Every structure is written in structure tokens, then in C-alpha cells.
Simulated assay, not measured.
Amino acid sequence: MLNINNSKLEKLKQKKKIDNLNVSQTTQDEDIMTSLLANTEIYEMILSLTPTNGESINNMPKTYMARIGGNSMIEVYVALILKGKKKIEDVPVIIREQVKTRCDELEIPLK
């Protein structure tokens, strides 16, 4: 007669579910990182077509800041710096000071 330990079988099923969730989470994290990096590439291409004279967005009208991505791109660069995918030197000059400020607020070291 076959002796089945139901408790052990349930634990194995739960471990399998957790392993599947971990794989899904890793895949999702990689997809998000790819999307963030793609967004920065698009942003940098748009900036290269926009005359700014290398100014910081502090000196620009709010409507211009909104058109060039403003706060949302600052947060994208902060996230990439936090994950080690970008350095502060990789951030476009136009938002670099704001990214530095946000990193300081979040106590993210800029290596």
C-alpha cells in the first residue's frame, strides 16, 4: 500500500508556488528595468533635439519643464541610480541637480 504524507505533499506544493512567484517577480523586475532604461534613451534623444544651452530646469518655465519630462524623469533616473544602472554623470545636465537633490533626500549615495 502506498503511504502518502499529505503534510509533506502540501509543503512541496507551496514551495513550488513560491518558486514560481520568485521567477515571475524576477522577470517583472527585469522588464521594468528595461522599460526605465528605454525611457531614458528616448528622453535623451528628445533632449538632444531640444535647444536648452545646457541650462538646468530651475531656470526654465514650468511649461517647458512639463514638456521635457520634469519630475517623472527625475524619479526614473533616481531609480536607475539606486539600482546601479546609471551614475550621476549619466544624467542629462538639464535635470542633474534635481536628481542629486532627490538622491540626497532619499539618502542614496552618489558614487
Rank of each mutant, 00 (worst) to 15 (best):
Y77W: 09
T63I: 13
D90G: 03
V93Y: 12
K83L: 06
I74S: 00
T50R: 01
K83I: 04
D90E: 07
V78S: 04
E97V: 11
E97W: 04
I81N: 07
K87D: 05
R96L: 10
Y77R: 09
R67I: 08
R96K: 14
E89N: 00
A79M: 01
R102N: 00
D90T: 05
Y64E: 03
K85M: 09
M73Q: 06
D104E: 12
S72M: 10
L80F: 11
K62Q: 14
N53I: 10
T101A: 14
M60L: 15
K85G: 01
L80R: 04
I57T: 03
P51H: 08
I68P: 03
V91L: 04
I81G: 00
I95E: 11
G69A: 12
G69S: 11
M73V: 00
N71V: 05
T52L: 14
I94C: 06
K85Y: 11
E89L: 02
K100D: 08
C103M: 10
I74M: 00
A66S: 15
G69F: 01
D90K: 02
L80P: 07
G70S: 04
I95V: 15
C103E: 14
S56C: 15
K100S: 11
C103Y: 07
E89F: 05
R67Y: 12
E75V: 02
M65G: 10
K86F: 10
I88M: 12
T63L: 12
I74E: 03
G54N: 06
L49T: 06
Y64F: 12
S72A: 09
D90R: 05
M60G: 09
T52P: 03
M73P: 01
R96V: 06
G70W: 04
T52F: 07
E105I: 06
A79Q: 10
M60I: 14
